[in-house]
Design a binder for these strands. Structure first.
Length: 573
DNA sequence: GCCGTTTTCGGCCCGACTGTTTTCAGTCG
C-alpha cells in the first residue's frame, strides 16, 4: 500500500475520532478533506515531502504537512496514537454501522462503556440502553439491522456490476405512472470505479405515490426510509438504492445536487454564496426568487460556469478550470474507432475471430485487433509460434469473408521477469499490433519492475503497454512501479499506454490517466474482451478516461485506420 | 485545521427522514 493511502487512512480515522469527541466540525472536515486529496494524488507523497512541497497539496497546511513529514520519517503520528488512547479504535470502527453516528456512539461509550462490537451487541439486548437520551425501541431495531449489514461487510460494488442493475431499476421506476425522466445520479453518474449505493432521480408531481410504488418493487429486500420525496431500500443483491422525486421546476437543480460529488457541491455552493445566491436541490435562488432549476446547464450558467461533465465533478480543479474557461472538451464514446485488445478462442477467449470481428463491425468500428496470449501464459492457452501461424491463416480467411472492418493480427505478449519478451523480434515484426503486459512476478520490487517494463517498451516492435499496474479492483493491489518513469519511456519511444475497460481492472485509473496526459503520453482505450458481449465495456474505459480529463487527441484509437496505421507502422496497400 | 482580488482572523453547504421529542437532535447523503 502506498504511503499516500496509509496517511489518507490515518487522517480519515483521526477525523472519525474527533467526530466522536465532538470537536470543531471544521477541523474534522479539514482532516477529511486532506485525506481525500492525499488519496487522489497521482504522485508519491514521499517524493513531494522530499521536495518540501507538501503545502502545495490542496487542504494540506502547516499542521498536516508536519504530520505527514512525521509519518514519512518515523512511520507513526503521535497525535493519532494519543487519540487512540482517548477513543478506542474498535469503537470508532462502529461508525460504519448505518444509523449509528458519532453522537450516539459517544454516549454509548461514556454511559455504558461500549468499546467494541461485542459490547454493543450485549447492550442492545439489555434494558440499560433505553436510559440513554434519544434511544428507543425503534432505534434499537435500526441498530440491529445496521449491525447485520455491517457484518455482511457492505463492500463497494464495481462500476460494471452496478451499472446494468441501475439501468434496469431506472427503467422500472420510469414505468411508474406519473413518473418520467428517470435517471441515475451520484457516483454512478460520475462513473467512479466503485460505487457505494445507487442514486436514482425521477420527475413527478406525486412523490408519495412514486416512492410507495418504488418500495414495493420485487427487487426490494428491506425498506430503510420512505417519505414524500425520498425513499431508500436495500436490494436483494445487497446494494442500497435511493430514489428522490422532484417536480419539473427543480429537476435540473436536483440532478446537479444528487450527482455530487459532495466536495464539488461544497465548492459550487460557496460560489453561489459569494454571489449572494443560495443553492439547494430545488433550485438556485436570489432571495426568494428562483433564478434556475429546470436544467443542470442553467444552474451552472447562472453561477457563471459552463456545464461541467459529471465525470469531472470531483473537486479536482474542474471548477477553477471552468471559471478560467479552460475546461477541456472531453472524449466521447462515439470518438472511438476500434478496439485494439481482444482475445479469441485461439487462447482464452470465448468467441472466434469472425464473431469478434462481426460484433465490432456492428458497433460501427473501423478496425479490431485480435491479440491472443503468448506461450508463457499457459493457463490462458497462450499461442506457440506454430499456432500463431495457424491463427494467421484463419485470420486471412476471415478477412476475405468479413468486409467493412479491418481485422488486425496482434498478440498480447508477456513481459518476462528480466524485461525480455515472450516472442522473438522475428515474430513480433510480422504482427500488426504488439501489446505487452505483466502476468507474472507481481511481487517484484519497484525499481526492478520499473526497469522490466521500461525495457519492454524500448523494443521497436512494441506498440502498447496493457493494464499498466496489474491491479484487480477489490481483489489484487497494483504491483509497485514508477508510473512516471513508464510514461516518460512510453512518450520517448512513441508507445501507447492502455486504459483497460474491464470493470475489474480500469487500469490505468482516472488519476493516473490524468498524470499520463499531463506528461503528453499517448493512451489507448481497449476492452480486453474475452467474449463478444464484452466489447461494449468500452463505455467504462471511455468514462474512466473522461474522469482523467482525456480529450480525443490523447487516445490513439480515435484515429481513423489510415492515421492509426502510421502510428502502428503497418504497411498499407 | 485550512484558507484568502471582499479577510492573516473569521469564516467554513444544505435539506429530508426518523424517532423520540414536546420543539428537536441525530444521521445521512
Amino acid at each position: 500500500m502506498s504511503k499516500n493511502v496509509e496517511i489518507a487512512d490515518i487522517f480519515e480515522r483521526i477525523a472519525d475520532s474527533l467526530d466522536i469527541l465532538e470537536e470543531n466540525p471544521f477541523k474534522i472536515r479539514a482532516y477529511r478533506n486532506a485525506s481525500r486529496n492525499l488519496r487522489e494524488l497521482a504522485e508519491d507523497v514521499k517524493d513531494i515531502t522530499e521536495r518540501d512541497e507538501l503545502s502545495k497539496i490542496p487542504g494540506i497546511g502547516k499542521d498536516l504537512a508536519e504530520k505527514i513529514r512525521e509519518y514519512i520519517a518515523n512511520g507513526r503520528i503521535k497525535y493519532y496514537e494519543e487519540l487512540n488512547e482517548k477513543v478506542p479504535r474498535e469503537l470508532v470502527e462502529l461508525l460504519a454501522i448505518q444509523g449509528l453516528g458519532p453522537k450516539m456512539l459517544s454516549k454509548l461509550f461514556k454511559e455504558l462503556k461500549v468499546k467494541a462490537l461485542a459490547d454493543l451487541e450485549r447492550e442492545i439486548r439489555g434494558e440499560e440502553i433505553l436510559k440513554i437520551h434519544g434511544m428507543g425501541k425503534k432505534k434499537i431495531e435500526d441498530i440491529k439491522r445496521g449491525i447485520q449489514i455491517f457484518k455482511e461487510s457492505k463492500k463497494r460494488v464495481n462500476l460494471g456490476i452496478a451499472l446494468p442493475i441501475a439501468e434496469e431499476i431506472v427503467n422500472e421506476v420510469n414505468k411508474i405512472p406519473g413518473s418520467e425522466k428517470t435517471v441515475f445520479a451520484g457516483s454512478l453518474r460520475r462513473m467512479r470505479e466503485t460505487i457505494g449505493d445507487i442514486d436514482i432521480l425521477t420527475q413527478s408531481d406525486d412523490g408519495k405515490r412514486v416512492i410507495e410504488s418504488f418500495t414495493k418493487m420485487p427487487f426490494v429486500k428491506n425498506i430503510l426510509a420512505s417519505g414524500d420525496t425520498k425513499g431508500s431500500v436495500i436490494s436483494r443483491n445487497g446494494i442500497q438504492v435511493d430514489l428522490r422525486v422532484v417536480g419539473p421546476e427543480s429537476y435540473g437543480a436536483a440532478l446537479q445536487y444528487f450527482t455530487g460529488s459532495q466536495a464539488h457541491n461544497v465548492k459550487v455552493r460557496t460560489i453561489a454564496v459569494k454571489k449572494g445566491l443560495k443553492i439547494n436541490e430545488y433550485g438556485l435562488f436570489h432571495g426568494d426568487k428562483k433564478i434556475a432549476g429546470e436544467t443542470e446547464a442553467d444552474v451552472y450558467k447562472k453561477l457563471g460556469l459552463p456545464f461541467i461533465p459529471p465525470e469531472m465533478r470531483e473537486d479536482r480543479g474542474e471548477i477553477e478550470a471552468a471559471l478560467e474557461g479552460r475546461l477541456p472538451t472531453l472524449l466521447e464514446l462515439e470518438d472511438i474507432k476500434g478496439d485494439l485488445h481482444v482475445h479469441t478462442n485461439w487462447s482464452d477467449g470465448y468467441g472466434s475471430i469472425e464473431e469478434m470481428a462481426l460484433t465490432a463491425k456492428k458497433l460501427g468500428y473501423e478496425y479490431i485487433a485480435v491479440t491472443d496470449h503468448s506461450p508463457s501464459s499457459r493457463i490462458a492457452n497462450g499461442l506457440s509460434i506454430e499456432r500463431l501461424d495457424e491463427k494467421k491463416e484463419e485470420l486471412e480467411s476471415v478477412r476475405k469473408k468479413v468486409k467493412g472492418i479491418r481485422i488486425l493480427m496482434g498478440s498480447e505478449v508477456d513481459i518476462l521477469g528480466d524485461g525480455s519478451l515472450d516472442y522473438p523480434d522475428s515474430v513480433l515484426r510480422d504482427l500488426d499490433v504488439v501489446i505487452v503486459s505483466v502476468h507474472s512476478g507481481f511481487k517484484m520490487e519497484r525499481a526492478k519492475m520499473t526497469k522490466r517494463i521500461a525495457n519492454a517498451l524500448k523494443n521497436p516492435f512494441v506498440h502498447i503497454l496493457a493494464h499498466p499496474t496489474g491491479r484487480l479492483i477489490g481483489e489484487r493491489d497494483p504491483y509497485d512501479v514508477d508510473l512516471e518513469e513508464v510514461f516518460k519511456t512510453a512518450k520517448e519511444f512513441g508507445k501507447a499506454i492502455e486504459v483497460n475497460s474491464h470493470y475489474l481492472r480500469l487500469d490505468l485509473k482516472d488519476i493516473n490517466i490524468r498524470k499520463a496526459i499531463d506528461m503528453d503520453t499517448k493512451l489507448v482505450i481497449t476492452t480486453d474482451s474475452h467474449h463478444p458481449n464484452q466489447l461494449t465495456l468500452m463505455r467504462l474505459g471511455v468514462a474512466t478516461a473522461r474522469r482523467g480529463w482525456a480529450v480525443k487527441r490523447d487516445i490513439i484509437n480515435t484515429m481513423g485506420f489510415k492515421e492509426l496505421s502510421n502510428f502502428l507502422k503497418i504497411q498499407t496497400d
